[in-house]
């Protein structure tokens, strides 16, 4: 029983860590977006306001995939162990 619970906790922790690999994508994407926005502002300094607000908007949308990963990780850390252990205990009983 202890081994099984330990395995569940281990699986959840490793899974949470792996889920956060999703952070790579938005990082690269947002970096590209900001780089492009810098170039645009450098070329046309008067369009600064529009470019900045559009960039922030795009960044927020691009961030969504990373946030999905974060939510999965948080569920795996805070919610899943309890749930799985309960299922295990119910099975054993």
């Amino acid at each position: 029983m202890t081994l099984a619970i330990g395995l569940i906790l281990m699986g959840c922790a490793i899974g949470a860590g792996l889920a956060m690999i999703a952070g790579i994508g938005p990082g690269i994407g947002e970096g590209n977006a900001v780089a492009a926005a810098c170039t645009a502002i450098g070329r046309q300094p008067e369009s600064r306001g529009t470019v900045t607000s559009t960039m922030l908007m795009g960044c927020a949308v691009a961030e969504t995939t990373g946030l999905y990963g974060l939510i999965i990780a948080i569920l795996l850390i805070f919610v899943a162990p309890n749930l799985f252990v309960n299922i295990l205990v119910a099975h054993a009983a």
């Binding site: 927020a60 969504t64 999905y68 974060l70 939510i71």
Partner: peptide, 16 residues
Amino acid sequence: VSMTMRHFGNVLSGVV
């Protein structure tokens, strides 16, 4: 779903 997750995830990540 994505609108919810985006807002929730951003605030939650700050809290965590």
